[in-house]
Design a protein around this nucleic acid. Structure first.
Lengths: 312, 312
DNA sequence: GCTTGACCTGGGACCGGTTTCATAACTTAA
DNA sequence: TTAAGTTATGAAACCGGTCCCAGGTCAAGC
């Protein structure tokens, strides 16, 4: 493999000069610049990325921590992230956790080892305190509202407002007993906290009988549908944590020839369009883009993305 | 930032010894190993990833070239890829191209610069000749059948067999005029080539009037549906290049109160389940896993994944 | 007693770049 | 005429690791 020293030797100039040519710096005589460039072309030389990264102390790479790679919620965020990173000449590395604390810790240590310039947590299991501890090793961006006075950067959607808005709309349409589907029943999960809070504001205390926990996929939603269909007294609508899950709920009712159950989904995916139920679009691509800008320090420390309630 | 020299100095031993401790090599006295480990813990030391990569001449990172990040076809491949990479201690970096040749070339040059150990092309615009030229800089894996005697590694599904199988099934059910939807009408696109070939085998020459090109999303599929609905003489079924596109076709017919049009999709996504049309599952996660193994040289140079026709 | 081999250790080259600094020539302004 | 600034260049330190090799100790085998 040919390196910068080879180019220097063959051109007769110093490594410094070659480096200047590579980086398009001034203070290189035109004639020497031309000769060095010619030799680089001739030898088919490309500077070693890793060596430059070591010397520069940065990798222009951002690690994106997420529980699962193939989930529409994260896929949409990643989409925005990848576009923004591409435009800025950054690379995105995918870091799956399956919500495992040990694995999250491993990625934090990789940040410490300078493998990434920044870490974006699209979701997390670690405590805020843990994340803050690692802040000094690189930028850390959250995709949730960490609350006041937290030193971590964060991009998030106005979930609470949009949830309240959607639930009020449902209540106004006469749905008085609302089922709720969540992924994790966990204080660490921002979406869980916010859903509970919004429900509380509109419907009052959430009876745990009206709650189905542990839904991530369509199949989970189908099981949630089964749960609600058999519930006595039943619910007359369901608020779900995702369109595909909502689709599962509806499909259960459909398959069992029950009266259709009004459903509110999230993410505005194809499934809610096909089944024509209302949904909340959190504009997750924009969330990803905002998170990227925070990660590279282009923006202030907090960024709010407006969510949109889509009535169907 | 504390480095290996600090640890060496503070422990009173040499850098070599510290390095041995870090890498759990033998030939270090127990007492020294213990002391070095204590000091590393105390100083909260983590070896610099980039420096190790430079010295080792590898990054344990694999670049995944794909046209769009947020498309279910690529998302499923990436899912398999990320899981396999995680299990093997590798990192996956996403490289979007939007099918731009210049951008693909940029990624090939990054392979040359040793930024990645290998490159996986989930789809491509570059010619095979171009890719082969870069082979010497690192492993290059294709997600299509490159044909005989090509020096590139490849993981692919038995598309042709599954297409022929699906089309024969359709013909057997009395569908004699079959519409076809493609993404790109391009010899470089393996899926286009194979679709044409399979169609030829079952239905004979493909009349371009029965062909709709340029479909990637649901909306594109909807437009394809409009096209076929107005076609005279019409088609009595449609073979599409993806479930979401198939869903678009069906939805157009539904929205316009036309008789439902039998559709064959691909990828076995939620949309084909909800709308209950047949599809071909290419087991793309397995494809991703296989591609990863090829990229790291764990497997031979070609890997065939069986596709599955799902009748609905 | 001497060879052999396993165990242990540190110096220093090496991976491939960037950057600081010293030096020098050549302008320009006072 | 001289001080100050601009342009141009290379030596060498530096980023933070890995690893080869030379040198030393010590016990087993003959």
């Amino acid at each position: 493999m040919t390196n910068i020293h080879d180019i220097a030797r063959l051109s007769g100039y110093s490594v410094s000069t070659v480096s200047r040519v590579i980086n398009h710096q001034k203070y290189v005589a035109d004639e020497k610049r031309a000769k060095v460039e010619a030799i680089m072309r001739q030898l088919d030389y490309v500077p070693n990325r890793v060596a430059r990264d070591l010397s520069n102390g940065q990798t222009k790479t951002i690690g994106v921590v997420m529980p699962y790679a193939n989930h529409p919620y994260f896929a949409r965020i990643i989409d925005g992230l990848v576009s923004a990173a591409f435009a800025a000449g950054y690379k995105i590395t995918l870091l799956p956790t399956n919500y495992d604390l040990t694995i999250e810790r491993r990625y934090l240590d990789q940040l410490r080892s300078k493998a990434y310039d920044a870490l974006i947590f699209t979701s997390r299991s670690s405590s805020l305190e843990t994340l803050e501890k690692y802040r000094k090793y690189g930028q850390i961006v959250l995709c949730e509202d960490p609350g006041d006075d937290r030193p971590l950067a964060a991009a998030y959607t106005d979930r609470e407002a949009s949830y309240v808005n959607a639930l009020q709309w449902a209540q106004h349409h006469g749905f008085n007993s609302m089922g709720v589907v969540l992924s994790r029943n966990n204080i660490i999960s921002a979406s869980t906290r916010v859903t509970r809070s919004a429900y509380q504001q509109v419907y009052g205390k959430l009876d745990s009988r009206n709650l189905f926990v542990g839904a991530v996929t369509y199949e989970d939603g189908y099981r949630a549908g089964e749960y609600f269909a058999q519930l006595q007294p039943g619910v007359d609508a369901v608020f779900t944590n995702g369109d595909d899950i909502g689709a599962g709920v509806q499909q259960y009712y459909l398959d069992h020839r029950l009266a259709p159950i009004p459903t509110i989904g999230q993410e505005n995916l194809l499934s809610s369009r096909l089944l024509k139920f209302s949904t909340i679009d959190h504009h997750l691509e924009a969330l990803g883009t905002a998170a990227f800008k925070l990660a590279t320090g282009q923006t202030t420390t907090h960024e709010l993305i407006k969510s949109e309630f889509i009535r169907r």
